[in-house]
Structure formats: C-alpha cells, structure tokens
Simulated assay, not measured.
Amino acid sequence: MQSLKSDALEPTRADLAALSTGQRISKLLPVYGLPILAVALIALFSALFPDSFPTLMNFSVLIDNKAVIALLALAVLCPMITGKIDLTIGYAIVLWHILAISLQVRFGLPWYLSAMIVVLLGTALGLVNGLLVEIAMIDSFIATLGMGTVLYALALWHTGGRQVVGELPDAFTAIDTLSVGPIPITAFYVLGVGILQWLVFEHTPAGRAMYAIGASPRAALLNGIPVRRTVILAFVASGTLTAITGVILAAKLQIGQASVGLDYLLPALVGVFLGSTTIKPGRVNVWGTIVAVIVLAVGISGIQQFGGDFYIEPLFNGATLLVSIAIAGYSQRRRRVVRPKTASVEASTVNAVIQPN
C-alpha cells in the first residue's frame, strides 16, 4: 500500500524566506490550491444560480447531507495515517444504523442504551480489524473488505431484506435534527472530531508515531514505537467513529435499510485521498480531508443545479478518486530526491518525524 504512506511536502518558513513573492506563491499554490478551488466553486455557482445556490437553506442541506461522509472520511483517516486502509466503514455503517433503530423498535431498548451498544460493537469491530491486520498479518485491504462483506451479510440477515421502521423518540432524532441558528448540529460534530484529531495527530507523540509508522513501519519500530499496538488502536478509533456515525445516520434517516451505506464508502475514500493533495501535500491530514469533502459537496451540488442526471454523483466521485490518487502518488514520488537505502538512515528520518516542532 505504497500510496498510503505519509510524508508532507509543504514548504517551511526557511524555504519561503529565501524566495521572491512570485516564487512563494508558486510554492504555496499546491498547498492551498484545494481551499482556493472550494472558494472559487462557491463563487462560480453563486454567480450562476444566485437564487438557489448561495442561500442558507442550500448550505444547511449540503452540510447535513455531507456530514456523514465527512465523519466517515475522518474515521478511515485514522488507520490510513499508519499506512493501512479500513474498508469496513462503508459496510459497518449499514449494520450500525440498522441496529441503532431495531434495538429500539424491535427490542424496546432506550435510545441511549441502543446507541451505546452500537458504539461498543463498533469499537469491538475495530479491535478485530486491528488484530486481523497486525496479529494475523492479513493485508488491511483484504481483511477489512472480507470483514465488511460479512457485516453486510449480517445486515441483510437481520432485516430479511426489508426496512426497519417504527416510532423513534424525539430525543433520538434530535441527534440529527437539532441546529444552532441556521447551522445543523452535524456541522459541529464534524468540526469537533476534526479539531480533536488535529490535536492528536499533529500535536501529540502518539499522532507523530502514527505518521512515522505510515512513513516506514520498520524505521518506526527501530525508534522504539510500538507499531502493532498503535495500528490496532488506529483501527479501534476508526471502528468507534464509524459506529457513532451510524447512530447519526439512523437519527437522520429514521429508517433502517441495507440498501444505504455502501454509497458512502467511495466518497469517504475520495475525501481522504483528495485531502492528501492539499494543506500537507503527500500526507493524509484532517483539514485537507474536510476541505476535500467540501469541494465534492459544492461541485456535485453545482452540477446537479445545472441539470445533471442521477449518475453524475458516482461518476464525479469515481473520477475524482482516480485523479486524487494520481496526484497523491506524484507528490509522494517527490518526497525525497534520494530515498534512504538503509534502515539506519530510515530510522533517523522517522526519528525526525516524531520529534515535536
């Protein structure tokens, strides 16, 4: 999984100090190109559709619709930082949102107890995924794809292929329907998770250790980083956040059905890969991921207002995934002029990664 390795290419202050203004702009443009694109798209579609696009209602709908994708993207970001991938997010959210509803309407459990059970099951799933990858030594792509397929089968078995419907308490649906002024509460979920992850990944030894593992597991191990334990915890975090997102999706849809969920997998992966091309190019990162989801949301919304057909969204997501992976791969090939040839050199490189700024 070479494409998942992390080593940011953003210029340092020392690099920029010796450059002219034009050269600084050319250096910073790849770093902040995606946020600039997001602003440009908003301005473009606002000018083209002044009566429908730049409205509070439209932006509220965009935020609420894409919050689940953003949260799933942040979930898959956790193991991806360590060079692993978790494909169960697209399958697990199917089962989790169904269980969050069926535990209430079929088994009569209180909504908060149902939500707690789902989150605990998500944490357990993350642990199992981590053990499969690090202890059983199964490639993360294969392990999580296989586990995800099992979860999807369980969802089909549990529902019998039918919808799970019933009366849900207002306190449960309020998880999604609440708003702060015109801003949906789901926006604050994404912002809160993003800030927490940014603090952990960028400003703690544990976060720097995760990036070091993504850069070189062998060198990280030589530097005394507990690689297996760290990767397993990354999967646990991914599983937990996916389950929380499943509860939010259940409160949003208020119906459990196995036909939803898989549509969220590709956009979440697109968000992470596309996000690795900005803010910290060549490294998957929190704010790049969130900006990428915004670009996807604005782009798809604008195209649909042009009158795009129903197949535009998957077409747009698939094409963007291919482009973003190509750009990310190019960025990573520029990581070093000469790649380290020995473990000792790799170890010194990773040691520099894990040192605080």
Results as ranks from 00 to 15, higher is better:
residue 151 L to K: 00
residue 142 I to M: 04
residue 133 V to D: 04
residue 142 I to F: 04
residue 166 G to C: 06
residue 133 V to I: 15
residue 145 L to R: 03
residue 159 T to L: 08
residue 133 V to F: 08
residue 139 D to G: 11
residue 146 G to Q: 05
residue 142 I to N: 01
residue 128 V to F: 12
residue 154 L to S: 05
residue 154 L to R: 06
residue 155 A to I: 06
residue 159 T to A: 05
residue 153 A to N: 07
residue 153 A to G: 12
residue 154 L to I: 14
residue 136 A to D: 07
residue 157 W to K: 15
residue 159 T to S: 10
residue 151 L to D: 00
residue 125 L to Y: 12
residue 140 S to G: 08
residue 137 M to S: 11
residue 148 G to S: 04
residue 161 G to D: 03
residue 164 V to S: 03
residue 135 I to H: 10
residue 149 T to H: 01
residue 162 R to E: 15
residue 157 W to T: 15
residue 134 E to S: 10
residue 154 L to F: 12
residue 149 T to I: 12
residue 138 I to Q: 02
residue 165 V to L: 05
residue 125 L to K: 09
residue 153 A to H: 02
residue 130 G to S: 11
residue 130 G to C: 11
residue 129 N to K: 07
residue 131 L to P: 06
residue 139 D to F: 03
residue 127 L to F: 13
residue 142 I to H: 01
residue 162 R to A: 15
residue 165 V to I: 13
residue 136 A to L: 15
residue 151 L to N: 01
residue 161 G to H: 01
residue 162 R to N: 14
residue 162 R to W: 11
residue 159 T to Y: 03
residue 163 Q to T: 13
residue 160 G to W: 02
residue 156 L to W: 02
residue 153 A to Q: 09
residue 127 L to V: 15
residue 146 G to H: 02
residue 166 G to L: 10
residue 152 Y to Q: 10
residue 144 T to V: 09
residue 138 I to C: 02
residue 150 V to Q: 01
residue 137 M to G: 03
residue 131 L to N: 06
residue 129 N to E: 13
residue 156 L to K: 06
residue 142 I to G: 01
residue 128 V to A: 14
residue 140 S to W: 04
residue 132 L to R: 06
residue 150 V to G: 00
residue 144 T to L: 04
residue 161 G to F: 01
residue 138 I to M: 08
residue 156 L to M: 09
residue 156 L to V: 10
residue 144 T to E: 05
residue 153 A to P: 00
residue 162 R to G: 10
residue 150 V to K: 02
residue 144 T to S: 09
residue 135 I to T: 13
residue 137 M to F: 12
residue 147 M to D: 10
residue 151 L to E: 00
residue 134 E to F: 04
residue 125 L to I: 15
residue 148 G to L: 01
residue 134 E to T: 14
residue 141 F to C: 07
residue 132 L to Q: 08
residue 135 I to C: 05
